[in-house]
Simulated assay, not measured.
Amino acid sequence: MADLTANTTMAEITSTFPGSKRALFARYHIGGCSSCAYRDDETLAEVCERNEIKADEAIEYILESHEVDKAMLISPQEVKALLDSGEEVLLLDTRTREEHEAVAIAGSKFMTQEYQQELFGTWGKDKLIVLYDHTGGRVLDTCAWFQGHGLKGARGMTGGIDAWSKEVDKSVPRYRLEMD
């Protein structure tokens, strides 16, 4: 998407700017609960009008937040190059235990609450942690959580394990989740 305008739908915004939902909720309390929710087919202008926010201000904030989000991301190819170079990289799987046990990137650790708390207390603040999920859709939230707890070396892998499988290691099986 080349331009973000007040007439852009929320579905287009959240697809193009994955962290926009988090950003809108953090700054304006929009989209985080049933009382402030929006529909995918609503335009940004409609959402802003209902919430008494200037659309231009919301656009500016979404774009600023997107630049911050991009700095938290790392591509599968960059991760592979770091691993190949011998750099110390902690690969941390944020998916469900069932997903991790079914298919995982070699050498990755499964993130439990206990392991997360251990990392917050012992892992070097600037040491590289690469978080990954299934398709990269939720990794930014987890990455922001880690950085907010002082682990500034946390990065989220774009495209998740699915991109890793397509772009780096085709021996890692791809899968899709079936939702009821």
Rank of each mutant, 00 (worst) to 15 (best):
162 D>P: 00
144 A>C: 05
161 I>G: 07
113 Q>G: 15
2 A>D: 13
65 S>G: 08
175 Y>F: 05
40 D>C: 06
128 L>R: 15
81 A>T: 09
2 A>F: 09
117 Q>K: 13
32 G>T: 03
153 G>L: 04
53 I>W: 03
28 Y>S: 11
82 L>N: 12
39 R>C: 07
98 E>H: 10
96 T>K: 09
104 A>I: 05
3 D>E: 15
84 D>E: 11
150 G>R: 08
23 A>D: 13
155 R>S: 01
48 C>W: 03
176 R>D: 10
158 T>H: 06
14 T>N: 12
92 L>D: 09
144 A>D: 09
93 D>Q: 03
85 S>R: 05
65 S>V: 10
2 A>T: 13
47 V>S: 01
63 L>E: 15
102 A>K: 15
133 D>Q: 05
53 I>D: 05
134 H>D: 15
165 S>N: 06
168 V>I: 11
37 A>H: 11
103 V>Y: 03
1 M>D: 09
25 F>E: 06
54 K>G: 15
60 E>K: 14
21 K>P: 00
39 R>S: 10
177 L>V: 06
33 C>S: 15
91 L>A: 04
2 A>M: 12
109 K>H: 11
137 G>W: 08
30 I>M: 01
79 V>F: 01
19 G>E: 05
39 R>G: 00
152 K>P: 01
115 Y>T: 12
130 V>M: 01
161 I>R: 10
145 W>L: 14
161 I>Q: 01
53 I>Q: 14
178 E>A: 13
157 M>G: 02
137 G>R: 11
15 S>Q: 14
9 T>M: 01
90 L>M: 06
22 R>Q: 10
108 S>H: 05
139 V>I: 11
111 M>Q: 12
178 E>V: 13
174 R>S: 05
21 K>D: 04
16 T>K: 10
134 H>M: 15
126 D>A: 01
105 I>S: 01
104 A>R: 13
155 R>Q: 02
180 D>N: 13
118 E>H: 13
129 I>F: 03
10 M>R: 08
101 E>P: 07
53 I>Y: 06
178 E>S: 13
140 L>C: 08
152 K>T: 13
153 G>A: 07
175 Y>A: 10
57 E>C: 01
157 M>T: 02
162 D>C: 10
158 T>Q: 15
57 E>D: 14
124 G>K: 06
163 A>P: 04
16 T>V: 06
115 Y>D: 00
81 A>E: 09
61 Y>D: 07
158 T>Y: 06
8 T>L: 03
125 K>Y: 02
54 K>M: 14
14 T>M: 13
36 C>P: 02
110 F>L: 10
170 K>R: 15
98 E>V: 12
101 E>K: 08
117 Q>I: 14
143 C>A: 04
76 P>I: 07
145 W>P: 07
29 H>I: 09
147 Q>D: 08
131 L>M: 09
114 E>P: 07
143 C>V: 07
97 R>W: 04
50 R>D: 05
62 I>V: 11
137 G>A: 14
